[in-house]
Design a protein around this nucleic acid. Structure first.
Lengths: 195, 195
DNA sequence: TGGAGCATGTAAGAGGTTACATGATTTG
DNA sequence: CAAATCATGTAACCTCTTACATGCTCCA
């Protein structure tokens, strides 16, 4: 039982889903490719944590709708009370930031402008999604026993983190602007002090 | 050349380091185990991107101090201008948040209190590190041509994100408090509306 | 005297990505 | 007419974690 397995259970305890739907819904808190999801669903079903029903569709491929079993629910609930492993964050952009002193000020600014724009569009999407939830569920989004509660909390968290990212980009671009533009061949670069 | 390889180059372009040091320094933006770092350093050295010098130490094991080569610098600089792959974030706690509606209010509160405490201690550490940098480098931390610039930006970003996490935990705990405490067997739970 | 820090390495296995494979319908 | 969406699956490969392996010093 790995983290992705619990992620799938935590989705299916809300409502039955196809593997395809799970991939979409999972995106907000656990990115996975379909090539990882489909075999895992089969495994969890064989282990008795899930069941599935094959639905034939006209004009679309057949699909398998998975549901959680009693055993699956029990396993998920037990896991809920165990301490979570620390988060893993791997962001290539941050490597580039680390080596930012190698590039000229103008290129650095462009990098941050692009980053800012990307996060700004994420914010717009996130705000839309939050509005949809609030419209559909009303106060249910703030009810800790409602199925949508956790999803709502996660979208709010994502939104906050994305807004923070934009604000950080602005802060960095401000620093890049404030740099004395005549002092291109600098002095501090000569010192060998490094952490 | 994978992302970790560029992460190592971006460290070594600042100053020569041992594998052991790299693992520590890398932590702020790319977590990796030593079992991944050491073989990769050997590979990069064989590819001519790094060189190393063996340093014998009394009272401590020998060490290999790696430095970047001209070729390594060229490869790194070229990579700097290529667009970064999207960030990968995998946080088990968020899976638990998704299924939070399964646990009682009190347990949910405990989970967020622990999360808050953990991030609060990260903030303390981060603030210390930032102060150390500011003391040692002065205005150098804001000079985009200084070797410490990128590292400083990253620590500031981490701090902001960690503060945002604490603020989000407070927001969630507030919601959990505001819930009508007599309404334990709820109504919204009965509806089958789900996204 | 046991644990943390310094220091490097290999091997096995789990987790995750990319590519291969198929195929109908809808939308721009 | 091409691209996106729905829908599922396998195989090869790369990435990352865990475990095995060694050994000295300093500190509580």
């Amino acid at each position: 039982m790995n983290a992705l397995a619990y992620a799938l259970l935590s989705m299916l305890v809300r409502k039955p889903c196809t593997g395809y739907e799970l991939k979409e819904l999972l995106e907000v808190f656990w990115q996975a490719k379909h090539s990882q999801i489909y075999p895992l669903l089969t495994k969890l079903q064989k282990d008795g944590l899930l069941t599935f029903e094959r639905i034939e569709q006209s004009s679309k491929p057949d699909k398998k709708v998975y549901s959680i079993t009693e055993k699956g629910l029990k396993v998920l609930k037990e896991w809920m009370f165990r301490p979570a492993n620390p988060a893993v964050i791997r962001d290539e952009f941050l490597i580039k930031v680390y080596a930012l002193w190698l590039v000229d000020r103008q290129s650095a600014k462009v990098m941050f402008e692009e980053r800012r724009a990307m996060y700004q569009s994420k914010i717009r999407y996130r705000e839309e999604q939050i509005q949809i939830m609030e419209k559909e569920f009303g106060d249910g989004v703030l009810d800790h026993t409602s199925r949508v509660f956790g999803r709502y909390l996660l979208f709010q968290r994502k939104l906050r983190q994305e807004e923070e990212e934009v604000s950080w980009c602005d802060w960095v671009m401000d620093i890049l602007d404030k740099t004395n533009k005549t002092n291109q061949t600098n002095k501090t670069n000569q010192t060998n002090k490094t952490i």
